[in-house]
Design a protein around this nucleic acid. Sequence first.
DNA 1: CTGAAAGCGCTTACAG
DNA 2: CTGAAAGCGCTTACAG
Lengths: 339, 339
Amino acid sequence: MKNPPTIKDVAKRANVSVATVSRVLHNLSGYSSATKDKILDAIEELGYQPNAIARGLVNKRTQTIGVLFPAVSGYFSSTLLHGIEEYAHSKGFSVIVCNTQDDGKRTMKYLQVLREKQVDGIIFASAEVKDEYDQAISEMRVPVVLVNTFSQKQIIPYVKIDDRLAAYQATSYLIQNGHREIAMISGTVGDRIAGSPRLEGYRQALEDHGIACVESRIAYGTFNMESGSQAMERLLEGGVSFTAVFAASDEMAIGAMGAAMKKGITIPEELSVIGFDDLELSRAVYPSLTTIHQPLAQMGRMACEKLIALIDDGEDVASSMVAHKLIERESVSPLHRPS
Amino acid sequence: MKNPPTIKDVAKRANVSVATVSRVLHNLSGYSSATKDKILDAIEELGYQPNAIARGLVNKRTQTIGVLFPAVSGYFSSTLLHGIEEYAHSKGFSVIVCNTQDDGKRTMKYLQVLREKQVDGIIFASAEVKDEYDQAISEMRVPVVLVNTFSQKQIIPYVKIDDRLAAYQATSYLIQNGHREIAMISGTVGDRIAGSPRLEGYRQALEDHGIACVESRIAYGTFNMESGSQAMERLLEGGVSFTAVFAASDEMAIGAMGAAMKKGITIPEELSVIGFDDLELSRAVYPSLTTIHQPLAQMGRMACEKLIALIDDGEDVASSMVAHKLIERESVSPLHRPS
DNA sequence: CTGAAAGCGCTTACAG
DNA sequence: CTGAAAGCGCTTACAG
């Protein structure tokens, strides 16, 4: 016997019908304990394992979900993924990862593949939900939940923090520490998820404290380290003074700190830095990074929980705006006024 | 029509048999261009999408591979995963991620799930291949390739660097810079993949240069940042002097640097540090980290390439010992002898 | 308690 | 060029 044993093989070996084998496999009722034993023995001897594909075909259920990320590398996505996979596995689901690179074509392609593979649900992470995605999603009658993003067109449950408010608080914290010349390293220009909202929070905080917002104190990156370090260089060469900087991601903050320190600027004495995300990283670097904590692993778990609830009982689930938190570490100090 | 359209629906609509529809779907020959058009129209109108599960059942091919990681978070795994997923997607495969947490039970469970889901192949990353895995793997007639690890029991193709040699070179580099009191922060005790070999390389380098190896200069971590920082604290409190340290991972190196700097030790002036991996991270921190470059994304790609070759034409593929490289940055300086 | 049979959505010889 | 039919490995009424 070259091929793996099927349910037929065990039925034959146990001298019963496949229906009965299927029953004991699912712990249904309807067989004597004697036949159950016979069947269990046959399964054992043959090393039989059910074929989930065949099962999926008849049940119209694959116990598989798809997760779309704009980038699978980096701490951010991987922490989120960890939370998702953890919960999924505990509930008997597998997860297919899709790295969209935040590209429209790729995203649409993945959406199609996931549809063909009959996934039971989809988690869409971090990227903006473009109109075409919105439409594709609603056409493939499959539950979807968003994490770290939201849809402006339709009601899709999401899990995220209040980015605008968190940025507002980060900036205010700097102000409370006496800073008034505060630069910002924002995320990708035009990013409506983690870009604009955080920038707005920054602007609002300055305004509410009667501080004018100077455009040349704003530099743009793309959330990763390299871009943070470049943004800092531009800021430094820009000729505007600043005693503190708020970076829209920890990775950019780390890159920015590195660039500043390379120029001989001491942190936090000469420059205070606050980040955003609270990646494991921010605790390890020196000086450790003051930042906004975003419970990524937990958010991944929650998103997955919502998705599976949707899959299992189809009831609507609510979105969750989860709490963020400012973590004080060493990269911010009160402004030392030259006296 | 509530359910998604099937091949039957398009056959009916185009007034042909399902066989013919299947033919045009696969660009086989055997139909007039007129019927082809009819069918294409029907597909279009119905919004038909093939069902990959049904297809998988008859073809015994799911176009899906499974990837087992000891930890899916952290830069290391996510970079590897990125390379794997990228290549897989380009070849029409999806990837299911499995986070084993380096736990035997979980790993076996995942192996079973992957088998039931009929994946076409498996990539096993970073963790030691225990005997029970080895056996489970050989029982499920599915191609497997290893990345960052190897099997001691059977021939399974792998992709990795020469850990022992790389560690030897890292240590030698420190020696060439005049250091003789060299500490090491090793990975997990007993880890036969990235633990012992790197430790051996370190020992060998010392020995070959006539330097005695002092056991109290060796501390053990678990490859992550936190453990590196703790290891450094232990080293510092241990009372042994050292002017340089070799950490078996960048994450531990970063954690160690942070811990040292917190104590007021300047790097590299008072302490040289060399890491291992060359994560994106190591370029961004200050001082930037001198380290051993390991082409993780490329290694992921290669592993996936081998796996798909195995799946597609079943021929044996060779293992690859890929080249590492020492990257000089700022965390190591020649020993300044107090004169 | 148990089995025969239909069906899930495809593909693939086989026959015309 | 085209279709009827068997079959992939399961599950699930239905009938006994």
